[in-house]
Computed example of a mutant assay.
Amino acid sequence: MRWVLVLAAVLEAATGLALLLVPSLVGRLLLGTELAGVAVTVARVAGIALIALGVACWPGPPRIGMLAYSAAVTLYLAYVGLADGPTGILLWPAVVLHVILTALLTRASTSDKEKKP
Rank of each mutant, 00 (worst) to 15 (best):
A36L: 14
V6E: 01
A72M: 13
W3S: 14
Y79D: 08
R28N: 07
D84Y: 03
I64L: 13
G65K: 06
L25K: 10
S109L: 14
I100A: 13
L53S: 14
G85A: 06
P117E: 10
A71M: 07
A68M: 08
L97E: 03
I51K: 10
V95P: 04
G60N: 11
V73M: 10
W92M: 15
G85L: 07
A103T: 07
A71W: 03
L11Y: 07
L29Y: 08
L50C: 09
G81Q: 00
H98E: 13
T41I: 12
G37H: 03
L90Y: 02
L67E: 06
L90I: 12
L7N: 09
L105D: 03
E34Q: 15
M1L: 12
A78I: 05
R28V: 05
A14F: 09
S70V: 14
L20V: 06
A71C: 06
L105K: 09
G81A: 04
V73I: 14
G37L: 09
K116G: 01
V80A: 02
A46E: 02
V99A: 15
T110S: 08
S70W: 10
A49V: 10
L19A: 07
S111N: 12
V45I: 08
V45Y: 01
G60V: 12
C57A: 05
V38H: 04
V40E: 05
L19S: 07
P117Y: 04
L104A: 08
I89E: 01
R28S: 09
